[in-house]
């Protein structure tokens, strides 16, 4: 597998248009074949199915009030959740990199739990803990704050699943940062805040932005934890992914396809944005 065999044949070429496929090595064949079958084909099926709708129908379905409200709930809540994670993610990365304290390694490892824990388990436990009788929900409900089965619950679930993205993007950059810069700023008379805003934050900024964008992207697509924690009432806490499933369950293939396509396109745009952000973050790297 490691080294491709060079084409050595000098025999007359056959007129088979797929001849080149037999001349590339096995890893290339597997990669191209599998990606075509598993990735291109499904994406093409969705896009072509969507294109069979007339443009005016597409726009009408995509902008129905229930769909618009689902986008609003999804994107606003995901953005707020990603920003909250942006703030606390930097704080957590900071204490993990710069300070030593008991259980630091265990806490560090536990940050990845939202990656590893199945989303339905996350939804189940968040719905229980934040329900009116739960450990955290009961004291909150005394204060008149309802979390489970409301939009706030959707937000908490999104904060949960997006957290590792910010921490794990910021942490390595912070770990590589030279402490000398801070110390020299400090010794030149900069205050603590000045040092943080002028010296520490600027080089971290691309990483923070990338982490927030990754977290946002994950929160926008999240389904499992949100569907369990939310009441899924249209115009209140119904998110776009849940709407797609609702449409499918009612055999509304056109509706599911159109909203699914909107979600797919937005995800791809976010992905391109993240790639540009990462390129921007690496612009000073020595090759």
């Amino acid at each position: 597998m490691a080294v491709s065999t060079l084409p050595t044949s000098t025999r007359p070429r056959q007129q088979n248009p797929f001849r080149w496929l037999t001349r590339i090595s096995l890893p290339w064949q597997v990669t191209i074949g599998y990606l075509s079958f598993m990735l291109f084909l499904p994406v093409a099926a969705l896009l072509l199915k969507a294109s069979t709708e007339k443009p005016e129908d597409f726009i009408r379905i995509a902008t129905e009030p229930i769909a618009l409200s689902a986008y609003e709930v999804t994107f606003t809540t995901a953005l707020i959740a990603a920003l909250i994670d942006g703030f606390f993610g930097v704080l957590i990365a900071w204490i993990l990199v710069r300070y030593t304290f008991p259980f630091r390694r265990i806490i560090d490892a536990a940050i990845d739990l939202p990656f590893a824990l199945p989303t339905s388990v996350a939804g189940l436990t968040l719905a229980t803990v934040y329900s009116d009788t739960g450990w955290l929900g009961a004291p909150l409900s005394h204060l008149g704050i309802k979390v489970a089965f409301t939009r706030l619950g959707v937000g908490i679930a999104m904060v949960f699943i997006s957290l590792p993205f910010v921490v794990r993007t910021v942490q390595p950059v912070l770990a590589e940062m030279e402490k000398e810069f801070e110390e020299s700023a400090w010794s030149l008379g900069a205050s603590r805040w000045q040092t943080f805003w002028r010296v520490i934050l600027p080089p971290l900024f691309p990483a923070i932005l990338t982490g927030v964008a990754l977290g946002f992207s994950r929160a926008v697509g999240e389904y499992g934890s949100v569907v369990i924690v939310a009441a899924n009432v249209p115009f209140q806490d119904l998110i776009a992914s849940v709407l797609v499933i609702r449409q499918l369950e009612q055999y509304e293939y056109a509706g599911a396809t159109v909203i699914g396509t909107v979600l797919l396109v937005i995800s791809l745009i976010i992905l391109i944005g993240i790639n540009l952000l990462q390129a921007w973050g690496r612009r000073y790297d020595v090759k």
């Binding site: 990735l39 499904p42 994406v43 099926a45 969705l46 797609v244 699914g260 797919l264 992905l271």
Partner: peptide, 26 residues
């Protein structure tokens, strides 16, 4: 970047794509 597409796409949309390919009307 293509390899990252499954990370970026909502799992529900991934499921939808499978249904649109192999489902009764697919």
């Amino acid at each position: 970047s293509l390899l990252d597409v499954p990370f970026a796409v909502s799992p529900v949309v991934a499921g939808l794509m499978v249904v649109l390919l192999y489902g009764r009307n697919g």
